[in-house]
Write a protein that binds this DNA or RNA. Structure first.
Lengths: 135, 135
DNA sequence: ATATAGTGGTTTCAAATTGCAACCGCTTTT
DNA sequence: AAAAGCGGTTGCAATTTGAAACCACTATAT
């Protein structure tokens, strides 16, 4: 993943931190779809390649957005979790989703409680995601 | 710029629409720094190459985020303007900026009224940007 | 204990994208 | 008539991506 030099612009900083094709897809899977394992990220509809996934997880950890810890139930398994830095990204992610729903005619509006909450009570959705990981 | 297939996910839709390395930098220059000409985008600190700029402007127009019109003061000049679709992206952009300011120690917090407004009255900042283009 | 399947990856390599630099045609200014 | 401004395009090398195969280790089933 390409990097620009240190920037004074908050937008560019954000783009350099998570603004590639895959990082937000991974964070979505973690924050909204309760995924935490390498293999789970591989099977999402967007079909990320395992080498790319590996690289992105590494930069997300380097950027302080994810932690990696051992799964105590399975020595060969790793668990990826969001940090506070990532949870504080939720307002932006929810605004992005609102915009996406508004302009993407293919949006899956009905299925699942997430889309419904997004449109009726986004702040409630945010706090419920946060509390899921603060627990 | 790479594209994924039609998606039901609002996040992926957003990423496919403006989620590359340069689109939000261009939109920032237009929305916040009052730029509208090709040459103006070229001289921003991030140093976008002219061929890439050309390609991005084209996809932004194709995606309905920009319009291109002739500059009546100069036959060889073009003016790029944001659409409503872009103005509705401001909530997301402002949340992205808030997060960037919070986590980027290099952020230029003092200079210019934008950073001050972002932290004290983001909604006022949003409406002032909108009215700038609705006028 | 032995084989099978699950886990988190790495390696290889071709194809696509990016980025730099030079160049271009048209218009406006001097 | 010359020079500078405008919005680009072209050519090409370097980087990044993506698909597929492969791998070492762990856990499970027989």
């Amino acid at each position: 993943m390409k990097k620009r030099s240190p920037t004074i612009c908050p937008i560019v900083f954000s783009l350099d931190t998570f603004g590639d094709t895959w990082s937000l897809v991974i964070l979505r899977d973690i924050l909204l779809f309760n995924k935490s394992h390498f293999r789970e990220f591989l099977v999402s509809k967007e079909k990320i390649a395992s080498n790319i996934l590996s690289a992105r997880l590494e930069t997300l950890i380097d950027n302080g957005l994810l932690t990696k810890e051992a799964d105590m139930n399975n020595k060969s398994a790793a668990i990826y979790k969001p940090t506070n830095k990532t949870l504080e990204l939720l307002p932006m992610i929810l605004e992005m989703m609102k915009w996406g729903v508004r302009y993407n005619p293919d949006t899956d509006r009905k299925s699942g409680p997430i889309m419904h909450l997004l449109l009726t009570d986004p702040e409630g959705l945010r706090t419920s995601v946060v509390s899921k990981f603060k627990a």
